[in-house]
């Protein structure tokens, strides 16, 4: 589904102010997988995501989505950004925000509207379509952003610290929403986070990145019983063990075997 080979990215083109964000990163994600990428802050996670989305051209290496080399944003790829207040358009109603990307899909107005309503319903926001983003809470705005991605029916959904700007309770609700949504729509999800608990709770697999320049430090399979549950899963011995391990890896400490 997604293959990354020797990805390297340097900002500022080799001058004295150059920033080496990613170094020789290799990664592959299987169809239908939910991969969480964790790493220390400022390690180049967002650069990685923007490279996959074709928003920036990496200085080296190759990225393939569905076997196609990424040159611009691939078809059937949707992004959910952390900062919903700046990625939802304040001048459009919620429904128009969700329906906007569908203009690329040769759908007429009626079908776009139906698809938007359906997507809003699946994130628990049916009836909010006529509102404007500023009339919704932060958590609800992020649900709208997720609905916008869902309506697009992507095969690959990228999420860039999607729950970084909401409170703890909302965060848990949104984590469960992602798990639920993923069960309904068959798609691959790459979720970037700096929250270790979150990566283990949501992911099928957790990839740990090093400090910048980022490369893969560890690639761990998460075998926790499903469906996951905020209380039970988090007290499961495997969860506790795994999150400690990821925590040590992120902090760059040796892992106890």
């Amino acid at each position: 589904m997604l293959e990354i080979e020797n990805l390297t990215h340097i900002y500022g083109g080799g001058g004295p102010s150059a920033h080496h964000a990613i170094d020789q990163l290799n990664l592959s994600v299987a169809e239908g997988e939910l991969l969480c990428i964790v790493g220390p802050s400022g390690c180049g996670k967002s650069t990685l995501l923007r490279s996959i989305a074709g928003l920036i051209t990496p200085t080296g290496g190759r990225i393939k989505v569905d076997g196609e080399l990424v040159r611009q944003t691939p078809d059937n790829l949707a992004v959910v950004f952390q900062d919903y207040s700046r990625s939802l358009f304040p001048w459009m109603s919620v429904a128009d925000n969700v329906a906007l990307p569908l203009r690329r899909k040769n759908m007429d107005k009626k079908r776009r509207r139906e698809a938007a309503a359906e997507a809003l319903e699946s994130v628990g926001l049916s009836g909010a379509g006529r509102k404007y983003p500023f009339q919704l809470s932060g958590g609800m705005q992020q649900r709208v952003a997720i609905a916008r991605a869902l309506a697009y029916r992507p095969t690959l959904m990228l999420m860039d610290e999607p729950f970084g700007s909401v409170d703890a309770q909302t965060r848990e609700d949104l984590e469960d929403l992602v798990l639920k949504v993923r069960g309904h729509h068959k798609m691959t999800i790459v979720l970037i986070t700096h929250d270790i608990d979150e990566s283990v709770y949501v992911g099928d697999r957790v990839v740990v990145l090093s400090k910048a320049p980022a490369h893969v430090v560890a690639d761990l399979q998460v075998d926790l019983p499903s469906p996951r549950d905020q209380i039970n899963t988090r007290e499961h011995p495997d969860f506790v063990h795994l999150r400690a391990e990821v925590g040590r890896l992120v902090r760059g400490q040796p892992v106890a075997h």
Binding site: Y11, S46, R50, I56, D83, E161, G164
Partner: peptide, 8 residues
Amino acid sequence: MNAPVLTR
């Protein structure tokens, strides 16, 4: 916040 300057 965490993203470096991406646009020129």
